[in-house]
């Protein structure tokens, strides 16, 4: 058991050290959602009327509405970026090193996933603090209650990245997948507009948004930020995480051969 703990700590710490050394990555991770919050949302505020829907008990500004979606966006980008580094690692040798450690492969992958998720959490809280400084704040207890929600959502999105990385052979192919995964996932969700608003323009789009796992991740975070549990979203995110993780473990199974010609 001690071996597992030692290895878990080391893998997570290594992810953290790598992230802290890439200051541009941290900056980019913060600037992206802040631009959305402080520029896009300000412009959009007038165009979009929001009615009172749970968990909100009163009228809210558009900026307040998109904060959970932007937390989701941070986790989405972080999950994809970590898996991008996995494809790079595989072309280098560090993934080989990890996968030849005398521990079960699922555990090694899960440790790496957790390491990446911790970085996502760090980014989310940095973003929430800056948003708070601009007066876009949540109830204090919400920040604490959001932690498990962010963790679960981060693991789900990281597992998606991990699953994708196991099927992508080269870095070049990954850029395309980023566009086909990140943008549809983000825009076809409740991150930027409530689902009922989407239904007004198209039932089909509404249904797609409602099925999108990213929508559930965002709703989970949204409710948690107001210290409420959205049970359906929680179960959905949890199950999706298990599915993505299973695909990733299957993808990295040695019998499928991570080492291709």
């Amino acid at each position: 058991m001690n071996h597992y703990y030692t290895a878990f700590k080391a893998i997570a710490l290594r992810e953290m050290l790598r992230f802290l050394q890439q200051r541009e990555r941290f900056l980019a991770a913060l600037v992206r959602p802040l631009v959305w919050l402080l520029v896009f949302a300000a412009g959009f505020r007038a165009a979009l009327g929001l009615s009172i829907t749970p968990p909100y008990e009163t009228y809210i500004t558009y900026e307040t509405y998109i904060v959970p979606g932007l937390c989701g966006m941070i986790l989405l980008f972080n999950g994809m970026q970590s898996s991008l580094s996995l494809v790079y690692d595989r072309e280098m040798g560090s993934m080989r090193l990890l996968l030849t450690a005398p521990l079960p492969r699922w555990f090694l992958l899960f440790s790496k996933l957790c390491g990446a998720t911790f970085i996502g959490l760090l980014q989310c809280y940095a973003f929430l603090s800056i948003a708070g400084a601009f007066g876009i704040s949540m109830p204090t207890v919400g920040y604490l209650a959001a932690l498990p929600a962010l963790l679960l959502a981060g693991i789900m999105l990281g597992a998606l990245g991990l699953a994708l990385s196991s099927f992508i052979k080269q870095l070049e192919n990954f850029a395309g997948v980023m566009n086909f995964v990140i943008f549809p996932m983000f825009f076809l969700s409740s991150a930027l507009y409530p689902l009922w608003k989407m239904a007004e323009s198209s039932e089909l789009l509404h249904d797609i948004c409602a099925l999108n796992p990213f929508t559930h991740a965002v709703e989970l975070i949204r409710f948690a930020l107001y210290a409420e549990i959205n049970l359906m979203a929680a179960v959905s995110v949890f199950l999706t995480a298990i599915v993505f993780l299973s695909i990733a473990i299957w993808g990295y199974d040695p019998s499928r051969g991570m080492k291709r010609k």
């Binding site: 001690n2 071996h3 030692t6 290895a7 700590k9 080391a10 893998i11 710490l13 290594r14 050290l17 090193l97 990890l98 450690a101 005398p102 521990l103």
Partner: peptide, 13 residues
Amino acid sequence: QNLRYFAALHGLS
């Protein structure tokens, strides 16, 4: 740091 990481993968700390 690199060697510490590898040691930990083998359960050494």
